[in-house]
Nucleic acid binder design. Structure first.
Lengths: 341, 341
DNA sequence: TAGGTTTGGGTAATCGATTGCATTTTAGGA
DNA sequence: TCCTAAAATGCAATCGATTACCCAAACCTA
């Protein structure tokens, strides 16, 4: 009873064919000005709106893109998505979101589903899974659906990615602690089989070496990104002799836990131990003792990811361009790491 | 060159018609077991996946729903979306997200766009705009597209909503401050033309009255939900005589700003002034002085919103059911409001 | 074995818009 | 006034899947 009006309705009303209506609506030059204007007016009057599904089916373009993230309710990811959305919306694209919860099966299913939904492209922060040749990702590449990695990438020839320089971020963060006069800098990192955590570890290590310090693996703890894990790690580190007087963590929640543990032990931050986190989560600057942290510029990451997608879509010549964008992270220096002034 | 296989491809290969293939794939009983199995096997071999656009066009169901929020990178909204997504995903729906930035034009455009994209339903945290009869929202209702409000609703007959009881939340929060022995409780709220803020104000006021306190409008500041605004409001309130010894705020960022301001003035929290915020933003519990705040259970809100949508979709009889779900908020009591033990 | 019922599957229309090709109309020139 | 090229529009196929309707073969039953 509440049917949408179609081009056929307009055609019938004006006693012309749907083809003419379609052409008029699309500003096809073969249509006379008079007819065009008549059609346009009538369409407006009849409240016509094109059925995107029909257009999509005919053209093979759905004007939807898929974005896959571990979970959406993390500030980093929701901000990246915001960036993507804001960049793509003006171009008429809609963003379909999917969560993987770091589950590779779910990730594969999401990819399948997006493919079936005929999305025009997929942007993904990938889980850390080995890819066999049968993996759905290879299907996507074969089908020539634009695919872009962000944050966590996989090294696949011909596939673009937008990431930050985790090595540099870690290096700079560690250097900052050295500059503050720290002599025994510990690192609380993440599973090194994940590229980003490995890079952060390497940056930390190299900064030590480059500045005449010895790398000592006793001062490194690898844990999952949770407050509780940070507490545990700090408890261990505080038993060392000498105690660390600086900690670089690959995660904000973890450094938060570490701070809580140290404070309860009477360790003064930053006087006794300067600390730096990673991700620049909102809470780091709201705390009574604001925490120094590495900003990953998620909004920019999202926007650039979207731009890379647009470039690929508009890339008419069939040359595959692989674009690896690496953003420079910014160290947001706050009280938690300032021993001097 | 990388065409997807269609039912026609399968039909040609098996020398049958596409209709048979379609029926076999859909378990139509008119197809013999032998044929069905043959088709299924062949489909698998040929890597067949149905084209959802074609299905959508034919059936009029896109299996997409739209979710409209002011912005996605707020914990509250991203968590609601997460709830919706997790509830709807098993049912084969995809979530398309849109942001309004609290701009009513953008909101209308988003609604239009979602409608054109033939979404099967729309869930929206509405902006605070008066609706004239021509508003797009009425189009949606006319077209019988399931529409559900969450968080911020509009009172439209026949339209369901999922909200929390803001009045009760405010009442309880204020009562809690009274129970802590506060004698002069101030309120920092939001624009009262927005229903949720008006309700919170009313709950605050009534709690005072019910407990034998006088309502004094000097102790009420209405500001936007920003840290800076909280500072300003606190500055004003601290000039009052007597100074407030308790503050109920309708916003977490605002109470954060207030805390910062008061602390810088030497006011001790909670001893000199107990404070309660609203939304239970993650940072409230991470702070060195954890902040008491009202939890709006966003995950549940999202899930219930999705459930209401599913009910409406599956509601075959044409009776319109209006469902107004009101969740009970929970006061998360933390140090910032505990004067006693 | 004629007539009736199942069973299994084909034909073609349909969803709404687009587009190559054919056809009609119009304008312009001689 | 007649002819032709250009301009404007119609026809019909197409995108991929679904489905009402029709038909043929096979199976029964008396």
């Amino acid at each position: 009873m509440n049917k949408k009006t179609t081009i056929y309705d307009i055609a019938k009303k004006l006693d012309i064919t749907a083809a003419t209506v379609s052409r008029a609506l699309n500003n096809n030059p073969k249509i006379s000005k008079a007819t065009r204007e008549l059609v346009l007016k009538t369409a407006q009057k009849m409240n016509y709106e094109p059925n995107k599904l029909a257009v999509a089916l005919k053209s093979g373009k759905s004007n939807n893109v898929g974005v896959i993230v571990p979970r959406i309710d993390r500030n980093f990811f929701s901000t990246v998505i915001r960036g993507i959305e804001e960049e793509l919306h003006p171009h008429g694209y809609h963003v379909i979101i999917c969560q993987t919860h770091n589950d590779q099966d779910l990730e594969a299913k999401n990819l399948e589903a997006l493919l079936n939904a005929q999305v025009d492209g997929i942007m993904i922060s990938a889980s850390n899974v080995a890819l066999d040749e049968n993996h759905i990702i290879h299907k996507i590449i074969q089908k020539n659906v634009p695919l872009i990695f962000f944050d966590r990438k996989k090294n696949i020839p011909g596939v673009s990615s937008v990431t930050i320089n985790d090595y540099e971020a870690a290096y700079n963060a560690t250097k900052h602690l050295i500059d503050q006069g720290c002599q025994n800098i510990a690192h609380i990192g993440g599973d090194r089989s994940i590229e980003i955590y490995d890079e952060r570890f390497s940056g930390y290590k190299q900064a030590l070496i480059d500045n005449g310090f010895e790398y000592n693996e006793d001062y490194v703890e690898l844990v999952r990104s949770k407050v509780e894990e940070g507490k545990k790690a700090a408890k261990k580190l505080m038993k060392l002799n000498p105690k660390p007087d600086g900690i670089f963590s690959s995660s904000d929640p973890v450094i938060l836990g570490a701070i809580q543990e140290m404070t309860s032990q009477g360790v003064k931050i930053p006087e006794d131990c300067a600390v730096v986190g990673f991700s620049n989560e909102p809470f780091t600057k709201f705390m009574e003792l604001p925490i120094t942290s590495v900003d990953q510029s998620p909004l920019e990451m999202g926007k650039i990811t979207a731009q890379v997608f647009l470039e690929q879509v508009n890339n008419t010549n069939n040359v595959k361009v692989e674009k690896k964008v690496v953003l420079s992270p910014e160290l947001m220096i706050r009280k938690s790491s300032l021993k001097k002034g």
